[in-house]
Amino acid sequence: MSGRDDASSEKSSARPSDEADQSTPPTDSVDQRPTSDVLASVIDSGVHEINRERSGLLLSGFSAGLDIGFGPLLMAVVLTLSTGGFGDLTTELLVASAYAVGFIFVIIGRSELFTEHTTLAVIPVLDGKATVTQLARLWGLVYVGNVLGGAAFTILAVVLMPGLGVVDPASFVDIASKLITHDPHWLLVAGIFAGWLMGLLAWLLTAAQDTTSRLLLIWIVTATIGLLHLPHSIAGNVEVLFGLVIADAITVGDYVVFLVLATIGNALGGGIFVASIKYGHVVRGGG
């Protein structure tokens, strides 16, 4: 009798742990969101931004333009303090990491950045949740805010920082020259790659589960853009304006050509290579 009781008690004690093991989902399903959930989150986020008040979008875009300027500024500081220059591996890595700082400030701070919305705001249009007119309104307000914020930061940095002795004005010119020396068609192609990477970043950040992962993703993607010297229309706005204000060799025409082609390239890269393809593969059963 006691043996039977012991056996039954062993079975009953073993059963809860077995059930617990069966009810616990695999590690992968806990750590990784299904792509359908990611798409739904992107659409919700895009619709929310599209429906925001006009003044809120403009102010948020202006804030992003200001904040992203710290990346190019730190790039100039690194170039000033470095014994090497562009072409030296250590310097290039340090400059690329400095470039990423501005994006960390903007994205973690949840300000509006045009190149994020080349993906986030396009997907709701593809899904029928928003119109092209609403998309154009969002892009226009955020873009104008970004450019004006970057211009304001440039004026402050060029006026104040050289006087502090931490930045050589020639570093500003070196940074700008890296972006305006391309032929126009290559500038457009490079802008597409930059927009592609930024659109991919927007998608990955939606899928990321924690702040540490988000910080790492922002650094990896934006430092890659900085290392390759790809033209990002908003960060590049500050970079080229630095050179325009300081050097006579950089003209208003150089600035306008850069801004127009980088903007078009960024929009194409984020809208086609990320928004359209990601949306298409998920709605057709991906993930």
Score class of each variant (00 low, 15 high):
Val245Ser: 11
Trp203Val: 14
Leu204Met: 14
Leu200Arg: 03
Leu188Met: 06
Pro231His: 03
Val252Met: 14
Ala223Tyr: 01
Leu241Tyr: 03
His229Leu: 07
Leu205Phe: 09
Thr251Ser: 15
Leu197Ile: 15
Leu227Glu: 04
Ala247Pro: 05
Leu205Gly: 03
Ile225His: 02
Leu205Pro: 04
Ile225Ala: 05
Leu197Pro: 06
Asp210Arg: 02
Thr224Lys: 02
Gly253Ala: 14
Gly253Tyr: 06
Gly191Val: 08
Phe242Leu: 11
Leu200Lys: 03
Leu241Glu: 08
Ala223Asp: 04
Trp196Ser: 07
Ser213Gln: 14
Phe242Ser: 09
Thr206Met: 12
Leu216Ala: 15
His232Asp: 13
Ala207Met: 10
Ala208Glu: 06
Phe193Thr: 13
Trp219Lys: 00
Ile220Gln: 04
Asn237Trp: 05
Thr206Val: 13
Gly236Phe: 02
Ser213Glu: 14
Gly236Cys: 07
Ile192His: 00
Ser233Leu: 11
Phe193Glu: 05
Asp210Ser: 13
Leu230Tyr: 10
Ala235Pro: 04
Gly236Ile: 05
Thr251Phe: 13
Leu197Arg: 01
Glu239Met: 12
Ala235His: 07
Leu188Ala: 02
Trp186Met: 12
Val238Gln: 00
Phe242Glu: 12
Ala208Gln: 05
Leu204Tyr: 07
Gly243His: 06
Ile218Arg: 00
Ala235Phe: 08
Leu228Tyr: 10
Gln209Ser: 15
Trp186Tyr: 12
Trp219Leu: 14
Ala202Lys: 02
Leu188Val: 13
Thr251Asp: 11
Leu244His: 08
Ile192Trp: 01
Ala223Gly: 04
Thr212Trp: 10
Leu205Gln: 05
Met198Tyr: 10
Leu215Val: 14
Ala208Cys: 09
Ala194Cys: 15
Thr211Glu: 13
Pro231Gly: 01
Gly226Arg: 01
Leu228His: 02
Asp210Asn: 15
Ile234Phe: 09
Ser233Gly: 07
Arg214Ala: 14
Asn237Ser: 08
Ile220Val: 15
Ala194Gln: 03
Val240Trp: 07
Ile192Ser: 01
Gly236Met: 04
His229Gly: 09
Trp203Glu: 11
Gly243Cys: 10
Ile220Asn: 06
Leu217Met: 13
Leu228Ser: 05
Leu227Asn: 04
Leu197Lys: 00
Ala194Ser: 15
Ala190Leu: 14
Asp210Ala: 12
Thr222Phe: 06
Glu239Ser: 10
Gly195Asn: 03
Thr224Asp: 08
Leu230Met: 06
Asn237Ile: 07
Leu205Tyr: 04
Gly195Ala: 03
Val245Tyr: 11
Thr206Lys: 07
Ile234Lys: 02
Ile250Pro: 03
Leu187Cys: 04
Thr212Gln: 10
Ala207Trp: 10
Ser233Lys: 01
Leu201Arg: 00
Val240Met: 01
Val252Glu: 06
Leu217Lys: 00
Ile234Gln: 08
Asp248Leu: 08
Ile218Asn: 01
Gly199His: 02
Ala207Asp: 12
Thr224Trp: 03
Val221Ile: 15
Thr251Lys: 07
Val252Trp: 12
Thr206Ile: 12
Ser213Lys: 08
Glu239Asp: 13
Ala202Phe: 10
Leu217Val: 02
